[in-house]
Design a protein around this nucleic acid. Structure first.
Length: 383
DNA sequence: AAGGCGTGGGT
DNA sequence: TACCCAAGCCT
């Protein structure tokens, strides 16, 4: 473990002091150009954009984030603009990106920054940590990248790189404290933001989970796992249990105008505050065979096939029942499919929409084509 | 403090 | 097909 020198700097073995400069040199030549990133050596990025990107990047790949980031930046260029937005518009813009509590926290955080911090993000890790949706990773990332604070940024990439460099064999998540401490011994006092992004780029492009490209790695001669030939086995992880399957019914109700009944889900929890095709509870076990919990009494027709979706902690199988009504006798958001793009439909509900429109007599139009995309997910089975 | 919380791409 | 797991946070 590193000792604290009187200056407050972390002391470290001499060899380790050489690692950061080598990685930064690699980063200067190989940094990916990303829309939220200032090129190495240029002026710091707008803290608002750093924050926005870091929230979106939580548990989410760069490629998935890019279009969302660009749309948010265009629509809400400042934290004040975002704070003044309608939360439902924010959720609609976030739809498809997942982990929707992030969008709610994003909005809450924008309002705190606008109202309590004068529109300026705090510059210290401790102060950032107080804001909604900002935890240990994100506070360090914003401090380092936006404000050049020498904070140690630890995400999944950094954990993997550090586990390999030091050949940490303790499985995750038990090894997290050790990995964090070892990462701290690598963090330089200068260019900590570039260093953090370099570590993450290294993990994303070179020190990958499988088949790491060690021959291209600026640290390959210092990597203990590589020296031992166990780089593919690290980091180890404790086994995780299998996911259960939950089943339920989604109710596709259409009025004479072709409007479809949608509903807003509970504020928090799974898909919190998002819009859904009304559905039963999703229960482990058999699909209920009675349309219990249907939004209206109607002649429900079971559509062929099933909608499958995987969440982080369970698999879902939805049966879709369809019916028409002569009048809008049920409260909800009666919405024409042409306008589905204006509501916060998460991906699982886009799948339901696609399935229903494919198996009912809905006239194909732009909306139908838009949702066809969501239907095609798996590769086609060979005949 | 262990589990809830999305989605998509890769192997 | 059936996993894995990603720029994590919250309770």
């Amino acid at each position: 473990m590193p000792d604290e020198a009187p200056s407050g700097e972390v002391t470290r073995p001499r060899a380790q002091t050489l690692l950061a400069p080598r990685l930064l040199a690699w980063y200067d030549r190989h940094a990916r150009r990303l829309p939220w990133r200032a090129p190495p050596g240029t002026a710091a990025q707008d803290p608002y954009l750093v924050w926005l990107s870091e929230i979106m990047l939580q548990q989410t790949r760069v490629e998935a984030v890019q279009p969302y980031f660009l749309r948010f930046k265009e629509r809400w260029p400042t934290v004040e603009a975002l704070a003044a937005a309608d939360i439902d518009h924010v959720l609609t813009e976030w739809a498809g990106l997942g982990y929707y509590a992030r969008a709610r926290s994003l909005y809450a955080c924008a309002n705190e920054v606008a109202e309590r911090h004068g529109g300026k993000f705090p510059r210290t890790q401790d102060a950032l940590l107080e804001l909604p949706g900002i935890g240990p990773y994100t506070s360090a990332a914003i401090a380092a990248i936006a404000f050049d604070v020498p904070a140690t940024v630890v995400d999944g990439n950094v954990e993997r790189v550090v586990a390999r460099i030091f050949a940490v064999e303790t499985p995750l998540p038990r090894s997290k404290p050790e990995l964090r401490d070892k990462a701290a011994t690598l963090t330089p006092q200068k260019r900590a933001g570039d260093f953090a992004q370099a570590m993450m780029d290294l993990g994303a492009t070179i020190c990958t989970p499988t088949k790491p490209k060690c021959s291209l790695c600026p640290w390959n001669d210092a990597c203990v796992a590589k020296a031992r030939g166990i780089q593919d086995e690290l980091p180890r992880r404790d086994a995780k249990k299998a996911n259960p399957t939950r089943r339920g019914i989604a109710y596709w109700l259409v009025d004479p105008d072709g409007a479809v009944l949608l509903r807003k889900r509970a504020e928090k929890g799974l898909l919190g505050s998002m819009i859904e095709v009304p559905s039963s509870d999703w229960i482990v076990g058999a699909t209920p065979d009675v349309p219990d919990g249907a939004p209206a009494a109607a002649e429900w027709q079971r559509l062929p096939g099933i909608v499958r979706h995987q969440f982080t902690h369970f698999d879902l199988e939805l049966t879709v029942l369809a019916a028409t009504v002569k009048a809008r006798n049920t409260d909800g958001l009666w919405t024409l499919p042409d306008n589905f793009g204006d509501v916060a439909l998460p991906t699982v509900m886009r799948k339901v929409v696609a399935h229903a429109m494919k198996h009912t007599a809905y006239t194909p139009n732009d909306a139908a084509q838009m949702f066809e995309v969501a239907e095609k997910p798996k590769r086609r089975k060979k005949i």
